[in-house]
Simulated assay, not measured.
Amino acid sequence: MYKQSILAGLVAGVMIAGAAQNTFAHTRLNIPTATEGERAINHVMITHSCDETTHTIGTSVVFPNGTDSTILVDGAQHNGSITDFMTNYGNNASMFFDRSAFDYMDAKTDANGNVVGFWAGGGPGMPNSLDVALPFRLTAASIEPSSCATSVKIYISIVDICEVTNVDGFGEGTVELWTHAGLGTPYDRDLHFAVDAGTDPGPATFTINRNLATNPLPENCGNGVAVEVKPSAAQINRDMPIQLNGQQVWPQP
């Protein structure tokens, strides 16, 4: 009964879809950058619903786990580990219980209990005319002193939900996909919405900057390198769905 009420709560907030997607306002973090080691209360900022007639009735958030993630160094793929650049990456986020917009929420964890994302849904939801700030605590992991990284950009995949459907029902009026294009998952932005060639505008980002005063670059690093961390397709397929007591409540199986 409890699991059924969650799904019913998600569906109940839906209104009939109609108008085109607003492509100018994205779901992002309100604090998109931090110096390594900083810990602060952050928010996922949902700035519009799926169209002008819908409510946002839920959201699903995934952080790359660093285990099977893609790591880029100055745009080139790195074949090593995230530990080559960060000393304490993983389990850096913790969600707050806040029923301002959604009645139900929970963290997503991996097999070791590390938080790899979170979800919220049900309740009144968010009207298209308003915004939602979903609070969580985020610690900026520390940069490995022996590395040449000056910054590490983390790509955070988010789906805002306006109607509970299966993945074939994704599109205008049902979801907002702030996800990668071409990753190879049913949640890829370019499978359901137009994406300009050569761009990947979807995911939110959180950039961790090196503290050059307390953690200077090694002498052989020159100006240093910029590192990026993206989730694997396997992780998105595993962690993007919303599970409740072992049952998948979104997307519909």
Rank of each mutant, 00 (worst) to 15 (best):
G18I: 02
A226Q: 11
T67C: 08
G80C: 03
Q243H: 11
A194L: 13
V225E: 01
Q235R: 03
A133E: 11
E176R: 13
D68V: 08
Q252V: 12
G90F: 06
P231I: 02
V11F: 04
F170N: 00
K3C: 03
G80W: 13
T214H: 07
S151K: 15
R137S: 15
A107L: 06
P135L: 09
S129G: 08
A140T: 06
D131K: 10
R137G: 12
K108E: 04
K3N: 10
I208V: 14
V132L: 04
N215Y: 09
F24D: 15
N65I: 01
T83Q: 07
C148V: 05
I161E: 02
L177R: 02
E163F: 00
T23F: 02
Q235I: 07
T165F: 11
P241N: 02
D84N: 13
Y155A: 12
H55E: 00
V116I: 15
A149Q: 01
S60Y: 09
T214W: 00
E172K: 06
T205H: 01
M1K: 11
N91Q: 12
D196C: 02
A226P: 01
R99G: 08
L138R: 13
S129C: 04
V61G: 00
Y155R: 05
V11E: 15
G182T: 01
A107N: 11
W250D: 01
T87V: 15
T67E: 14
M15A: 13
